[in-house]
Design a protein around this nucleic acid. Structure first.
Lengths: 345, 345
DNA sequence: TTGAAAGCGATACCAC
DNA sequence: GTGGTATCGCTTTCAA
């Protein structure tokens, strides 16, 4: 019933040629409607599904998209948004009949892996995650000739490839503007790892907002690192020890914000009074599920949406390889909460 | 150089037969060492890698493991541990030359997807994520005859399949014991979704510890749902409104704990004095990166490790299909922090 | 509208 | 040790 049954056997069973059965199953127009129905019914009945390897070999198409995620040998965190992103992507793949292949690569042998992916023919397209400002993979993939979409951007490279990205720069600019409007002048940033492109853009956004008010950024108020609670904690303690500590802090993620809160609590400082905190949330969907949290600038749902759109973009590029590079910029929501207050006078 | 080049062409180039080249590249013993070296050098030089489809068709092996993750149509969260788990798994696959195929399925058409995976021959084995207490997939996969390892367990089913799991029951039992030892008697649990097996086990752990002290659980102190900040917040507010509110709370995750903290803060309650909080952390690795946080019972690193071991288990099962079901139980660490204190007298 | 047969690119059996 | 060749299961001309 559901055992092994191949096209040839199915064809014999139906008293038809493999050719016709294949055509019927793949929606070719030249097959008679009655025949098609008969074939489809039989296929369903015996639980036939084509052997993917034979199909791939014959067609040259993989019907699969590769997601490639760099993971340092060192214990770097896997960004929690990753799960949401691929959830969205898989929705699109499901609809289109594509599979998703996941490859985690060490930074070192990345190039080789891509070439392999291509030559082995396992994927028809690729989504590149976590790009660096001058990411080499972009040139590499173009050379290889595999359609690809970058989740994020490589700011130092010419903007002529396909990408989908949150407007990190603008989101952090707005968050900072918000704090400035509340009268804050000593505004700190606890940022993600600044070798990553997204973190650089976030930093730019903060600096832009400050500059617009004629404030020059104090390097002592700019911190960055892996987005952990520890980062938030230590950065805050250090900044609080400054002669002129910050009155407001922009946090790169809720996890970081948690560390900040702990640090402030340990110093007996009241959140929203002596110090205001604004956090970007792309990691845990507090907002969508939650209530009156601090300031947030992206929602979990939008990450999933980004994944879906990224997937649709690659599929489109596969369909029409000659099309101009698709680019999608997603604006973050800005939502205010209770942990921000006016600057103390 | 890196263009298309197949075995036959490589063989011609080398003045050898495809057979020999294939053998040389696949480490067959009967090929002369000198020949092997020559072939390998040439393969590297021209950038040859075998076509995966042809290979799969010829060998019948997919050299890929499928990870199947159920995702409800509704906006259920993707558990953040997922990213760490597959990171670990991919390390093992990389070493063994396997690929990872990711399939996210709606609850409904799961069965079909598994059958498809099998028939299309895309994977040699499967890792099942997020099992339910009486998960049907286990019977299904066994019937299909595909080697599989469950990440988690299905408590209501006979324990005769391969799994890897954290000892959730014991972890929560110990956390509760800790609170009991501090003199707490009104102990609340804010749990994950209890249709999931892991959440059920956690609940059992808490109840066991309470029962051991002759305390019967108050249903009003047992809350469960999606592990969001909102859950922690609302559950805490509701419990605090009880005539006899809890003096200690066990939280299913750090995210939930965050909501609890917010709720307590909003009520002007001091953490660790009036109310103690103990949180399970399998999501964000505070511990590994962090400092004196509350009580934690699992670390991020251990999730990654679990992924690696799960992968090794499937590979082992593929190697030796007749072996007894492998089962791995991982004990969680228990680490105490500053947000727990003696029960107020 | 249907069928016969030639690939697709590897592996593996059987000779030599 | 090495080489010829059938084989895996499907798609896709080309004929009928």
């Amino acid at each position: 019933m559901s055992g092994k049954m191949n096209l040839k056997q199915l064809a014999e069973h139906l008293q038809l040629s493999p050719t016709t059965v294949s055509r019927a199953l793949n929606g070719y127009p030249e097959v008679k409607e009655a025949t098609r129905l008969r074939v489809e019914a039989a296929a369903r009945a015996v639980g036939y599904s084509p052997n993917a390897w034979a199909k791939g070999l014959a067609t040259g198409r993989a019907m699969a998209i590769g997601h490639v995620m760099p993971v340092s040998k060192s214990h770097e965190m896997v960004n929690p948004v990753f799960g949401d992103f691929i959830t969205g992507a898989s929705e699109a793949y499901l609809r289109a009949g594509y599979d998703m292949q996941l490859t985690l690569v060490d930074d070192e042998d990345e190039a080789m892996r891509y070439r392999n992916l291509r030559r082995r023919g396992l994927v028809d397209g690729i989504i590149v995650h976590a790009p660096l400002p001058a990411d080499e993979r972009i040139a590499l993939l173009r050379e290889i000739g595999l359609p690809f979409v970058v989740h994020g951007r490589a700011s130092e490279l010419p903007d002529d490839y396909a990408w989908i990205d949150m407007n990190n720069r603008r989101a952090f600019e707005r968050a900072t503007e918000h704090l400035l409007a509340l009268g804050h002048r000593r505004i700190a940033l606890v940022n993600g790892p600044e070798r990553q492109d997204f973190a650089l853009r976030r930093r730019e956004g903060v600096l832009t907002a400050l500059a617009a008010q004629g404030i020059e950024a104090d390097p002592a108020l700019l911190s960055s690192g892996e987005m952990t609670e520890r980062l938030g904690y230590t950065a805050t303690r250090e900044m609080r020890a400054l002669p002129d500590p910050p009155t407001a802090i922009v946090a790169a993620s809720m996890v970081v914000a948690l560390g900040i809160w702990r640090a402030l609590r340990d110093e007996g400082v009241t959140l929203g009074r002596e110090v205001s905190v604004v956090a970007h949330d792309d990691d845990l969907g507090y907002l969508r599920n939650g209530g009156d949290v601090p300031v947030f600038t992206a929602t979990r749902a939008s990450v999933r949406d980004a994944g879906r759109r990224a997937a649709e973009m690659v599929l489109e590029m596969i369909r029409d390889p000659s099309c101009a590079p698709l680019q999608t910029l997603i604006e973050a929501e800005l939502i205010l909460g209770q942990s921000t207050g006016r600057a103390p006078s």
